[in-house]
Design a protein around this nucleic acid. Structure first.
Length: 662
RNA sequence: GGGCCUGUAGCUCAGUUGGAUAGAGCAGCGCUCUCCUAAAGCGCGGGUCGGGGGUUCGACUCCCUCCAGGCUCACCA
């Protein structure tokens, strides 16, 4: 069995350098030649060796090339340019192994990794910003699992915060509704009859509450009273908060399930408080002097953390952890939560199956709880590495949490507590004007590249609305092309296309770029889009179908083709284009590994797109099923089989399913 | 003011740890469906890589500086 071409080339070069120059290079840099004629892999290592050896790069390269021995899938090495060493792989060897599925699987690594993502405040419907978070988080999970890691997915529920309180105030004070009325008027049945849904209703009510406060500052006392009642517990207000946030989480889970994102456990902030996680962490923080009580100044009466120079803003060199009224801030709770994730707290949650009622259960899922009914067969938390998928606006707070771990002496865990930061999704002024005609836009606003969304103002595109619109458009496109299909067949295809479009849209941008949501670009099915990728697989499938129909099942079986297929059968001028498709698939593992390393997932999406472009070009240039020369047809069929299986797998990594037809 | 991010084609964006002629999509114009579905392909036009210094064999990439824009620096999260 041959390893990945990169590893093979590195090993071979190391041996050649040792025998030619009698030195052991520490690291062999690799790159890819700008075009296929120059080779499959390249190394600029001679430019570095030139410094120490005091010879010209070309001279060094020539000696290494002389000492190079072919084998292990490398056919030959050439000196090129100013001193590059370019490798030519043994094409048939790699093609056959890829088809036979003989490539080595990732070595499993049992050390647990926690990925926390989604984390939507349970007081309103999910919007496209949450969609970006979930797509990035879920895709990271898929990549990590691909490279053999054990991953636990957590979705943190902030069910005791101000945002939930505001929604409760809306029900109680504006609508004048108590728990009984809420249960009755907003039962699933009642909502369905009125054509409403709970999360959308909350979206509007939350914006309404914000305005209600703005109209009269005195009304803010309701917020404070609500928060106090929620924290005290055992009262109707707290019950409403619990009910409302649970209903909201159900909707979020359904929305995310539509795009293929699922979770293992939902840690709830209320349980962090009720189980005294915070009290525990507080004692540790106090006894290690990580925080201290201030007696004078603006933070008098608060427990604060002194910030390292790098974190200190112009006016602030302290972060309040416990307020003067004795309640803990979000950062404090998050420090306790982070400690638990690493198994450093010495306490654990209780767990219970998540209560999906009254909506339907989508999958079995655990939620934390505060009482002792433990039935979970597995343990949560206690990871060696943690990724927190949170947008870049929270970078400062994430650094404070990290510093908290550090000042408790957990430097190693702080280093492995990784803030996966990405930029927000915003709206273009044109999109705001189109979708929110009542929203006032100043001259300045119109001139901006983008405007932030605002849950408080109800300014944002709901995730489900976007998905519904995409599905509608996909449906009509499918119907146009396949008039014989009935509606039920079209549904599943449209769903896959919509998900493909939205996931690719969220993945195509590098993470530190603000996505200025553009409706036309998000709804596009042509060009650099998810459907473009899906369509290429459908085409490959159609070709395989034709070949199978004419020449039997064995003619398209990967294992059969992998036995003895050879690109040498192809007309010489056309080999490079066929081989390029194989080569791009050989690079997938390296691309995924690098994406995890840099947390730049867009490179994998981009790689898939480049592959699809190459395949579409191949599709137009060469016939497969109609090719009369049997060995040429066989070689082309092998390429199509490789593409079909490989792209299906690659898209699965991106969370994109392929429709049977398009 | 401090920290972080961004500035590349008309528009939206790629450009992997410095490396070979700076790429793609959209928009525009012109072609290609009796063919394995045209959600596609081919061609054309289009660039002071924000400005200015510096580092070196070599800079879109690294360093300094300036300009422009964004996010953030709560007893909200």
């Amino acid at each position: 069995m041959t390893n990945a071409p990169e590893a093979v080339f590195r090993d071979a070069l190391t041996r050649a350098i040792e025998s030619a120059w009698d030195l052991a290079p520490t690291e062999i840099p690799l790159t890819y030649p700008p075009n296929a004629e120059l080779g499959d892999l390249a190394s600029p290592v001679c430019f570095e060796l030139a410094r120490t050896l005091k010879r010209s790069p070309r001279e060094i390269a020539a000696a290494i090339a002389d000492a190079f021995r072919a084998g292990d899938g490398i056919e030959r090495v050439e000196v090129a340019g100013a001193g590059y060493l370019n490798a030519f792989l043994d094409r048939d060897v790699f093609l056959r192994e890829k088809l036979s599925g003989a490539t080595a699987p990732a070595a499993p690594d049992a050390r647990k990794i926690i990925v926390e993502h989604t984390n939507i405040n349970p007081n309103k419907a999910a919007h496209i910003g949450h969609l970006r978070n979930a797509v990035l988080g879920d895709t990271l999970v898929r990549f990590l699992r691909r490279i053999g890691r054990d991953v636990e997915v957590q979705n943190y529920i902030d069910d005791t915060g101000v945002q939930v309180a505001d929604l409760v105030v809306g029900f109680q004070q504006i609508r004048g509704e108590g728990l009984a009325q809420i249960l009755e008027r907003y039962s699933e049945e009642a909502l369905r009859e009125r054509g409403q849904r709970f999360d959308y209703l909350a979206w509007d009510l939350y914006a309404e509450v914000t305005q209600w406060y703005a109209d009269d500052d005195a009304r803010l006392t309701h917020r404070a009273a609500c928060l106090e009642a929620m924290e005290r517990g055992d009262n109707e207000t707290a019950e409403i908060a619990a009910h409302v946030s649970r209903r909201m989480v159900q909707h979020h889970l359904e929305t995310m399930d539509r795009i293929g994102a699922r979770y293992d456990v939902l840690p709830r902030e209320s349980d962090i408080l009720r189980l005294d996680f915070w009290k525990h962490a507080f004692e540790r923080l106090k006894s290690s002097s990580a925080i201290h009580l201030t007696e004078r100044g603006k933070n008098a009466g608060c427990w604060v953390m002194d910030l390292a120079d790098a974190e200190a803003g112009a006016g602030e060199d302290q972060k309040v952890i416990v307020r003067s009224n004795g309640t803990v801030t979000y950062v404090g709770k998050d420090i306790a939560y982070q400690m638990w994730k690493f198994g450093l707290l010495g306490k654990d949650f209780h767990y219970d199956a998540f209560d999906w009622s009254p909506r339907r259960e989508l999958y079995s899922l655990w939620s934390t709880c505060s009482d002792g009914r433990d039935e979970n067969p597995r343990s949560f938390g206690g990871a060696t590495r943690v990724y927190n998928v949170i947008d870049t606006r929270q970078s400062y707070l994430q650094r404070v949490v990290q510093q908290g771990l550090r000042s408790l002496g957990h430097d190693a865990q702080a280093d492995r507590s990784i803030h996966y930061a990405y930029e927000m999704v915003a709206l273009t002024p044109a999109a705001v004007a189109a979708m929110f005609p009542d929203h006032p836009l100043s001259e300045e606003d119109r001139g901006r590249a983008y405007l932030e969304m605002s849950g408080r103002k109800g300014l944002g595109v709901k995730a489900d609305d976007l998905l519904d619109t995409l599905i509608e458009r996909a449906r009509s496109e499918i119907a146009k092309r396949n008039p014989e299909l009935d509606a039920s067949e079209i549904d599943e295809m449209a769903r896959r296309i919509a998900v493909g479009a939205v996931r690719y849209y969220m993945l195509r941008y590098t993470r530190n770029r603000v996505v200025a949501f553009d409706l036309d670009a998000a709804l596009a099915f042509e060009g650099e889009t998810g459907p473009y990728l899906q369509y290429s697989v459908v085409r490959a499938r159609n070709i395989l179908g034709k070949v199978e129909q004419a020449f039997g099942p064995e003619s398209v079986a990967a294992g059969e083709l992998g036995r003895d297929v050879s690109l040498a059968a192809l007309p010489p001028g056309t080999v490079a284009e066929h081989w390029n498709l194989v080569l791009q698939f050989l690079r997938v593992d390296a691309v995924v590994a690098q994406a995890v390393e840099t947390l730049e997932l867009s490179t994998v999406a981009k790689h898939a797109y480049t592959l699809a472009q190459a395949f579409n070009s191949f599709y137009h240039r060469y016939r497969v099923a109609q090719e009369e020369n049997a060995s040429i047809r066989r070689a082309r069929t092998a390429i199509v089989r490789l593409y079909h299986d490989g792209m299906l797998e690659l898209l699965e990594l991106l969370g994109i399913e392929v429709p049977t037809r398009m």
